[in-house]
């Protein structure tokens, strides 16, 4: 639902850290239970990155599986869905993984971004 805004945020955060250098790659961790559609983010990224230091960047999406831990029996188990009960019957499950919404890392090239160079020339 907020994939466009989230993508804008991603571009904004990475651009801040890139300090004018062209970004080659951005790696995201998106949990499968985070409530966001990873494909929409991919789709938006190309559009949002245009005109920024990320415009040549490749987006790497790492979708993280849900992992839960039952508070009753302490067993950890895979969670394909947000609401799941443990094999023991308890629904009191702590989610250990699957809700991430993170920029793990980005890679920049040694040159300054052409975008900024062009802007500076105006």
């Amino acid at each position: 639902m907020h994939e466009l805004g989230i993508t804008r945020n991603i571009v904004s955060i990475v651009a801040d850290h890139a300090n004018g250098r062209a970004v080659k790659r951005v790696a995201l961790d998106i949990g499968k239970l985070a409530g966001l559609d990873a494909r929409s983010i991919s789709f938006c990224f190309d559009i949002v990155a245009q005109g920024t230091v990320l415009e040549k960047a490749v987006l790497e999406l790492n979708e993280i599986d849900g992992l839960g831990k039952c508070r009753s029996c302490e067993i950890e188990f895979a969670m394909p869905a947000l609401i799941m009960s443990c094999a023991c019957g308890s629904r009191d499950v702590e989610r250990l993984a699957g809700e991430e919404l993170k920029i793990r890392e980005f890679e920049y090239s040694d040159e300054a971004s052409q975008v900024l160079t062009n802007q500076a020339a105006c």
């Binding site: 989230i6 850290h17 080659k24």
Partner: peptide, 14 residues
Amino acid sequence: HGNIVSLQQSILAK
């Protein structure tokens, strides 16, 4: 590591 910057930053950090 080289030109890779590890951010580990939540997108909703702000």
